[in-house]
Nucleic acid binder design. Structure first.
Length: 633
DNA sequence: TTAGGTTTCG
């Protein structure tokens, strides 16, 4: 019989390395560069590591594919190298990868989970590895080697180099050796930004942002070798760490400033210079990375600003504060994203008190609903992209008919994707009979599954809807440049029963992959969207309520907690007449029309107030319903 | 094979 046993690895201390051997080592990263293109076929990651022997050793990893390179995010990360070759260079020993080398990295922060980062499908990892990582973390911490601080935009000092962790919102190619990256990290840089004049035609991602979001955006110019990587970055959305970014104070003074005013008021430009000295480079951080999780929580809280923008577009300017809060400083309130809780005070505040309070708090109120906007139920629903925080109206059927008919006129000769089987379907609709081009995934050919998903070419909206009774998923398609593709994303990319699913026009990157290749059983709207490169938009309610009590009245927006308020999901309200009627009944009962019998009921609501930037020099306080319950009589 | 840290000059 054969005994299978875990291989036991022995690790050599860095001070014990001799040239000409293949060894396993552990170390703390004290320096690293992002992979850079060599004159050969590979990219090269250069790094330097140290361990408990206090010896530091340089290491080069050559790999053709970027994704196979060590996932080092920060100085202080722990790295484990298996089967690396030692070699003599400049009177010292260095490490280089060879056939069979395996690299795994870990976060270097003490106390955190020991999670291996690797692109290998299989790699050895056991309790001994956890222990080795913890030992190195403790050793590094004990030597007071601090991890480099992560500088938010709000703490950037002019004339310094720093690493920035941020989200990419938009980018623009300035010329062949310079690309502009527009990023944010949720904090506001106190220095005015370098203004970069770019047009919408050269911008990828949104071209303009609301005034208050604009104040949070940093313009970063990346040069030379970094332009190649910048091309691959996805806008909007990629989370980045930019290493060795330089904050350069500009020579231009703001208009109207005297020379006695401090230098802090100068413009600041951010440059990522060419070359790789000092680890200069850009890295896309995975969403699972703790710093990205934290960043997402912070950025998520700014969705309120976009709500504010949308309401402006409705020509319903938010309330200005009736009382003065004392400070005339333009100040941006940064909502505490986590732990946004209602304190559930027993005694509600009066609206007059609420309006006298500074923004940034919670208020329990007992109020009546005096009016609401919009008044037509279908306008309460919006499409919302959680990736770029944009909102859109839900298109009506007239608009959709237009898009479908344009797409069917456009459809020309094309090559169906290799994974699809093509045919025609005959639709008996009314007096006429129509034949449509249809495609199904070859994965579905196993008899019973062919009703799971169908791609239809050249149909009308009505025909697409008709097919939803026979097919679980209906994807309307057209052709473009000889290939099958989705319709304009203003139209639903997917019909499932009565539900229609939309993709975000700025975030989607349509590719016609086979949605069935991941398994027919798992096919929901999310997996189909993902396969097709579509960023799925969510349906949300959005309303403006006019609230009143004996002392005052104010406008509050009902958004995130609207589903709680109505007891109906936005998806249901869009697909289902009964749910829509239920929303209308709720609103009518809370806000009866003049002359109808019955009084106006009282509502217990929790409001959160926030200062929504300074539009035209004056800050505005906005209120959002964040929790609600009907008052018991 | 390649590179083998050590700040651009926009």
């Amino acid at each position: 019989s054969r005994l299978t046993k875990d291989p036991k690895y022995t690790y050599v201390r860095l001070s014990e390395l001799k040239p000409g051997a293949v060894v396993n080592v552990y170390g703390v990263v004290v320096f690293f560069k992002q992979p850079c293109r060599t004159r050969g076929t590979d990219f090269c990651t250069s790094l330097k590591i140290t361990d408990q022997s206090n010896q530091s050793v340089c290491c080069n990893i050559f790999c053709e594919k970027l994704e196979d390179h060590p996932k080092i995010f920060r100085i202080g990360d722990i790295i484990r190298l298996h089967r690396v070759k030692t070699q003599s260079f400049n009177d010292s020993v260095m490490l280089i990868n060879t056939f069979g080398t395996s690299v795994v990295t870990f976060d270097g922060e003490q106390g955190g989970p020991v999670e291996p980062r690797t692109s290998c499908r299989t790699f050895h990892f056991d309790q001994d590895d956890s222990r080795a990582v913890e030992e190195l973390r403790a050793w590094r911490a004990g030597r007071l080697v601090v991890l480099p601080s992560l500088t938010p935009l709000s703490a950037v000092q002019p004339r310094t180099f720093f690493d920035l962790t941020c989200q990419l919102l938009a980018k623009a190619s300035m010329d062949s050796s310079c690309t502009l990256l527009r990023v944010w990290d949720g904090s506001r840089c106190p220095h005015p930004q370098l203004k970069v004049d770019i047009g919408p035609d050269v911008t990828e991602g949104p071209w303009s942002f609301s005034a208050q979001k604009e104040q949070l955006i940093a313009n970063i110019l990346v040069f030379d070798n970094h332009v190649e990587l910048a091309k691959e970055l996805k806008v909007p959305g990629d989370f980045l760490r930019i290493y060795n970014l330089r904050a350069i104070p500009g020579s231009h003074r703001l208009p109207g400033l005297s020379s006695s005013q401090p230098a802090e008021l100068h413009h600041l430009a951010f440059h990522l210079h060419g070359g790789t000295a000092y680890g200069r480079g850009i890295r896309v951080l995975p969403e699972t990375c703790p710093e990205v999780q934290e960043l997402k929580r912070v950025l998520d809280s700014f969705q309120d600003d976009d709500l504010h923008d949308l309401l402006e577009a409705w020509n319903t300017p938010p309330e200005r504060p009736s009382g003065e809060n004392g400070s005339s400083e333009p100040e941006l309130w940064l909502p505490v994203a986590a732990g946004r809780r209602c304190s559930h005070v027993l005694c509600p505040e009066r609206l007059s008190e609420v309006r006298r309070s500074a923004p940034g708090g919670f208020h329990h109120v007992r109020v009546q609903l005096r009016s609401f906007q919009p008044s037509r139920p279908h306008q309460l629903l919006k499409l919302y992209c959680s990736k770029c925080c944009s909102m859109q109206d839900v298109p009506d059927d007239d608009l959709l008919e237009d898009i479908f008919s344009q797409a069917s006129r456009k459809a020309a000769t094309y090559e169906p994707p290799p994974w699809a089987l093509s045919g025609t379907a005959t639709l008996p609709l009314g007096p006429s009979v129509r034949t449509l081009d249809v495609h199904v995934s070859k994965e579905l050919l196993d008899g019973v599954k062919t009703k799971q998903l169908i791609f239809i070419m050249g149909s009308s909206l009505e025909e697409a809807l008709h097919l939803t009774s026979g097919y679980r998923n209906v994807v309307p398609v057209t052709s473009s440049r000889g290939h099958m593709t989705l319709l304009d994303l203003s139209a639903p990319f997917l019909f499932r029963g009565r539900r229609r699913y939309y993709g975000c026009r700025s975030c989607s990157n349509v590719v016609m992959r086979d949605p069935c290749s991941g398994g027919v059983e798992l096919m929901d709207e999310k997996s189909i969207a993902e396969a097709l490169g579509v960023e799925l938009m969510r349906l949300v309610f959005l309303m403006k309520l006019e609230l009143r009590d004996a002392t005052d009245s104010l406008h509050a927006y009902l958004w995130r907690d609207a589903e709680l308020f109505f007891g109906v999901t936005a998806e249901d309200a869009a697909a289902n007449q009964e749910s829509q009627s239920s929303v209308c009944r709720t609103l009518e009962s809370l806000c009866p029309k003049e002359g109808s019998s019955g009084g106006r009921p009282w509502l217990d609501l929790c409001l959160v107030s926030y200062r929504a930037g300074d539009d035209g020099g004056q800050a505005q306080t906005c209120y959002q319903v964040c929790h609600s319950a009907m008052a018991t009589p």
